[in-house]
Structures are given as C-alpha cells and as structure tokens.
Design a protein around this nucleic acid. Structure first.
Lengths: 251, 251
DNA sequence: GGTCGCTGTTGACGTGCGTCAATGCGCAGG
DNA sequence: CCTGCGCATTGACGCACGTCAACAGCGACC
C-alpha cells in the first residue's frame, strides 16, 4: 500500500518504556488529573518513545492518523503548504504539548510536523486512546479540555494575525515562549529559539526581513538582547505593553 | 451571585421539546452516527430550544460554561475584544454548527456569541453531555471529531489571515458560505449574508472600506452580483481561482 | 412626507510592511 | 587555513491596504 509506505516516518525508534507517573511533564500533559491506576492504564496505551532528529518529520500532510504525539524533549513546528508554494507555520510545540488533534476530523494529518531540534516524543495510538477515554472519565475529560485549549490558542492566533501590528505580533510570540518555558521550570527571560527567522515569519504572517528588523529594533529599545537565536528578555513588562496586552497565546 | 446574574442571557425561552431524530440537521450536527437508542438519550440531555433575537447574546465573555449550543435556525457571530477596543470576529455559525467548544478549557466563555438574525438554538448542558459521552462511545467519537474539525477550521483561517491577500480572503470566505449553504440543501450561489461589512472585515482582518471595494471589484469583474447583503455568485470556478485554491474553510 | 441614523460606497492620501538586492556572519568540510 | 553555503541583517523602494472624509441609500419613526 503506497500511502502506508510514504507515511512511515523515517525516524529511529527507541523501545523505551513510557512512565508517565515519573515524568516531570505529567502535570502539563495528558495524565493531568488522573489517579495512579488510571495513569497506569494510560501508560499501557502509550507504547513507546520515539527519538526524532532535527529536520525529520513526525508525520506528513495526508498521512493517516495513527497516533497523537506528546513532546517530551525538544520542539516541533507544524506547517501547511498552499498550492502556489506559500508556507504557513501553524504552531510550535514545546515539551508537555501535544500534536495531532487536527487529524482526528478526517483521519488524516492536514499538515507536516517537523522536529526543530533533536527531540523525543511519546507516541499515543489514537484509537486506543479513544477506547481508553471511553472507560476512564478523567481521561476523556482531560482530552476534551486539551482540545478546547488548542481551539482557544488558535483563536488567539487569529486575533494576532487579524488585528495586531508586526511588533505586537512578535512581542506576543516572545512572551508566549517565555511563559511556556517558565511553565517547564526554565528561565522566563533567557530563550533559545529553535526555529529560524523564516519560521517565525511564516508563523506570524510577516516577511523574514520584518522579523529581523524588529529584533534589531527591540534590541535598540533596550527590550532584549539578541544574539542569533539566543534572546534575553530584559523587560517583560514593557514587552507586555508592546504586545498590546491581549493575546496571551498558549497560556 | 453576581456572575450568575450577569451571565444569564436576556433571551426568550421556548420550552419546545427537542427531537434530533426528526431534525433535518441531524446529519450535520452532534447526532451524526448515533443509532436510534443513543440519539434518544442525547435528546434527553438537550433540554430545550431557545429562541434568540437579532442582536441578543447567547453568552458573553467570562460567562461560566453551562452549555454548548447547536444552531438550528439563523446565524451567530463570535467576537473577542482587545483591551484597546479592537474587535475580532472569530467565527460565523450557520444551522447545524456548534458553538462554545472554546469554553471547555477554562470553564468560561472566552468570547461573545451574538445572533446575527432571529435564530433558534438547541441548548446542550455541557456537563451532562460529557457524562453521556462517557456512556455512549459514538457520542464521544463524534464530539472529538467535531472539536477536531473546529481546530482544522481555525488552522485554515490562520492561513487565510497570515498568508492570503485581501481578495483571496474574501473569495475564500464567500466560497465557505457557499459550501455551507449548499450542505444545508440551499443554493450554493445565492447568498444572503446576515453579517455587516464591518463584521466581515473584523473576521477577515480587513478594513470595512477594503471589503466594500472588493465587492465592487468582484461585481465589475463579473464574478458576482451584489445588492447589499444579497450576493449571487456567477462563477464559482473563477472565484475559486481568485481564492488561491487552498483555504476551503469549514468544508 | 421629512428627518434621522445606520450601513455601505467611493475617492484621495498616507504608511506599514513586502520585495528586491547587497552584504555580513558563522559553521561545516576540505 | 580558506572556501562555500545557509541564515541573518540592513537599506532602498514600491504597493496593498488602512485611514480619513464626503456622500449615498434606505428603513424607522414621528
């Protein structure tokens, strides 16, 4: 079968056993709110961890939905392609975040997911997950909640793209990364962005040159220090003002 | 309790019994794929229909989540407000479509939902729905699927706002309405838009003047006849080309 | 019928961001 | 070490769309 061939991701597979209850991301991830017994059942469904190297695809547009993926280490971007070649980056995914919900609708992934750096994911076979959610109320609840959060995130991005200026967009985006990194227990001010300026531009609906100029301007204004993809935010409060104060994407 | 006061919508309530199985929208709506027995259970949960007059709010930003709503007749828009007063319209909802999924995440509606015309909705108490989905596998399945579709829809809108020109946006939007109306068994070419140019602008990330000019231009180009909010699409194929061929929002 | 108010249209003009092009910079490979 | 290549920066310029402003159409109401 051709599609199964083309859809088999070219990634190395490590048979590591999954152990949600000893995972430091469990409070951000699918197991949130589950008791120990339920979590154990979930672990049974999550077959394995998979290592994905920088530039490798977790799945491609058109691949049949087999699994959802939880980022355990590293980061990903999801990208869509228009017929004339225009690219859109629909999201960046950090540890504790889940990919693939947009595939449930048509049983097919509507976008590509690519590792921005060496990453690990937990693979969650979707049909087993749905079955288990049928038995474990807490899991169904968490699943619905996470999907709702994804919808909220997208709606905030709609505001960002529809109503915000270039500088508001970039400021909002940086603050989003800051918040998400802080939630992982890392620094809220020292970011090392795994994505290119091009990716950021395609995410924020801006040209790469605009992104670059904004980084320079923000640095001149004393808002941050920029050295390539390493950014230190010097004044979160002022950055917040620049962002227009709304648009706290991916809380 | 203040919040319960402020959140009670000011709408008339009709105690009409819900009957999904005799509803001509059932193949578009939540009951899709349910057998008769399951559907009957669902009917038990959907307490009542509610009539909403033009301009009335189904819910407001900050209201606690009590119910999801299925549009039965009429149409709605959902709107978010930035702190400086900028408005964004995050969606338009036609018969057979559901509102409120973005409230599950935080148990609170993150936007307003306003009737664009005299409308009827079926009110679906969310917590009962979640309970029933725990017992009825087909319902859980359908719920997850609909939420996934909402995510896909939003991602398509992100492409629209992030990467498309003004004319591509409007063309895509009109084609989306055309498709959705056709799905309801109505004309795919004769649209009567319930929303103002302002609303369309806030939805598409464009100024009202741009919307107005585009309608004029499309008319000059023989793509459509425009008379106020009544639009007749004269050439779906060419409109499709103008739309850039991607971006089939809300298939 | 006249007035008011709201929505939509059209034109003139300004600007934020895209496009094009040149240059800089860091890293991998010989 | 030098070379090459991909990514990022910076500047000059143009254009799509926003802004501002005038006006038209139309229904509501007295």
């Amino acid at each position: 079968m051709v599609s199964s061939q083309s859809s088999r991701p070219i990634v190395s597979i490590s048979g590591l056993k999954v152990a949600c209850k000893s995972c430091n991301l469990r409070e951000l991830c699918l197991p949130l709110g589950l008791d120990e017994a339920d979590m154990q059942q979930l672990e049974g469904v999550i077959q394995r961890q998979r290592a994905v190297k920088k530039g490798e695809m977790l799945y491609r547009t058109g691949d049949p939905l087999r699994s959802l993926y939880a980022v355990r280490r590293g980061s990903f971007k999801t990208t869509g392609l228009m017929e004339d070649g225009r690219v859109h980056v629909s999201g960046f995914f950090l540890p504790g975040e889940l990919l693939g919900f947009d595939a449930i609708n048509a049983d097919r992934h509507p976008c590509d997911a690519e590792a921005l750096e060496t990453s690990d994911v937990c693979e969650i076979p979707y049909h087993k997950l749905e079955e288990l959610a049928q038995q474990v109320a807490g899991l169904q609840h968490q699943l619905l909640k996470i999907m709702s959060r994804e919808i909220v995130r997208d709606e905030q991005l709609l505001v960002l793209l529809g109503r915000m200026t270039a500088e508001e967009r970039l400021a909002s985006c940086l603050l989003s990364f800051s918040r998400r990194q802080a939630r992982l227990g890392l620094s809220a001010t020292d970011l090392s962005l795994a994505m290119s300026r091009q990716d950021l531009g395609h995410y924020l609906g801006l040209a790469i040159e605009t992104i670059s100029r904004l980084f320079s301007r923000f640095q001149e204004d004393g808002l941050m220090e920029v050295r390539g993809r390493t950014v230190r935010l010097l004044n979160l409060e002022r950055l917040h003002d620049v962002a227009g104060v709304t648009a706290r994407a991916r809380g």
